[in-house]
């Protein structure tokens, strides 16, 4: 499909959820119990969150990198009242897409 037509695609129902991911991996690994596949998939995501909660980065070449960004304290405003409010410094999760995945999303399948 030409790239310029992609913008109009509706993909509201095109969604993969955790249980479908587990199902696919279970199908490919019939020697594993389903509950072990669940533990494996959950461990992957848990480990990424644990790492970020400890202030670490998780770099998954080709897929992307998860890191923690610091947001400085600032004076915000209550949008309803216009009143100034102090917003404390905080840390937020951040994901940067890897080059290989970014290229694949745009139709370059080369390695």
């Amino acid at each position: 499909m030409p790239l310029e037509n992609r913008r109009s695609i509706r993909r509201g129902d095109d969604l993969m959820i955790r249980s479908e991911l587990i199902e696919k991996i279970a199908e490919e690994n019939p020697h594993l119990y389903q509950r072990d596949v669940e533990r494996i998939v959950n461990t992957v995501f848990e480990s990424i969150i644990d790492a970020m909660a400890d202030g670490n980065r998780v770099e998954l070449r080709g897929f992307g990198a998860f890191s923690v960004k610091k947001r400085d304290a600032r004076v915000g405003r209550n949008p309803r009242t216009g009143e100034a409010v102090q917003v404390d410094e905080k840390h937020v999760p951040f994901f940067k897409t890897g080059k290989l995945l970014r290229d694949r999303l745009n139709g370059y399948e080369g390695t």
Partner: peptide, 14 residues
């Protein structure tokens, strides 16, 4: 599997 789904145009919600 997550990458393949995204490349197919699916969102991935964990």
């Amino acid at each position: 599997h997550m990458s393949d789904a995204l490349v197919r145009g699916e969102n991935v919600k964990i």
